[in-house]
């Protein structure tokens, strides 16, 4: 139970934010004028869409980031490291809005440019985090494992990954929060996400809808964070 304790804070915060974006609660912010709260069905549709997009982007980034991180930390592929680092730094220097805008004429409106932005912007943090976590494994532990006769694959599975687990979970948490935030930007390319009521609210002064979009996006980020923290806690118990 104690392993799950760190997840309680984000979980409660996420639930509170989710409750705050319910139309009955958010409507308290102000009524009349342009302030019209979104209905619950519309909001849950948007949230589901947002979560699907963010989760697919996150899954892609996590696989690619972890995979590339594993590859470049193998001594055999050390030569690739510089090139992959440069490429990832380049991808990070291009802001998500610009990726979305550039992809618009090629990929059209909606989901695809958003997914591209998710992938481009998420790779570097995921890659750097993975490399950092794997490099934090002490060389002595690695040497000892090799000395008792483990194969490189066994060293990776039984020594490096368990020892780097907390760092890897950290990396996944950052990547998830980033994915949720970038998906909101996708609304500018016409993807229907929780960014849609925010952008529309900006244009027609609908503060309540803007607040609902913001709170719901933050709730998703915190709930996902709680889930990953819990998973990390469970993983650590298994390793210990």
């Amino acid at each position: 139970m104690r392993r799950l304790a760190p997840a309680v804070g984000p979980l409660l915060l996420g639930l509170a934010l989710a409750a705050a974006c319910h139309p009955a609660v958010a409507g308290l912010l102000g009524d009349g004028g342009a302030n019209r709260p979104l209905s619950l069905t519309r909001l849950s549709d948007l949230a589901l869409n947002h979560l699907t997009l963010a989760a697919s982007g996150f899954a892609f980034v996590a696989c690619l980031g972890l995979g590339l991180g594993l590859v470049v930390t193998r001594s055999r592929f050390a030569a690739l490291r510089g090139g992959i680092d440069t490429l990832a730094a380049f991808a990070q220097a291009v802001p998500p809005v610009v990726v979305v805008a550039l992809a618009l004429p090629i990929l059209g409106f909606g989901g695809p440019p958003t997914l591209l932005a998710l992938a481009a912007y998420g790779i570097m943090p995921a890659l750097r985090g993975t490399v950092g976590a794997l490099e934090s494994v002490s060389p002595e532990a690695r040497e000892a494992a090799r000395a008792v006769g483990l194969t490189p694959g066994q060293v990776l599975r039984q020594v490096e990954l368990p020892l780097a687990a907390s760092g890897l979970i950290e990396t996944l948490r950052t990547a998830f929060v980033l994915a949720v935030a970038v998906t909101a930007v996708g609304a500018l390319a016409g993807a229907s996400t929780l960014g849609t009521p925010i952008v529309a609210g900006l244009q027609n002064q609908n503060v309540v809808a803007m607040f609902q979009g913001t709170a719901a996006a933050a709730a998703l980020a915190f709930l996902g964070d709680a889930l990953l923290l819990a998973a990390g806690g469970l993983a650590r118990r298994e390793a210990a």
């Binding site: 949720v180 909101a184 960014g195 803007m210 933050a218």
Partner: peptide, 12 residues
């Protein structure tokens, strides 16, 4: 603050 999408923060 990082959890709040940039578009929303500007609007707020």
């Amino acid at each position: 603050l990082q959890v709040v999408p940039a578009v929303a923060l500007l609007g707020g």
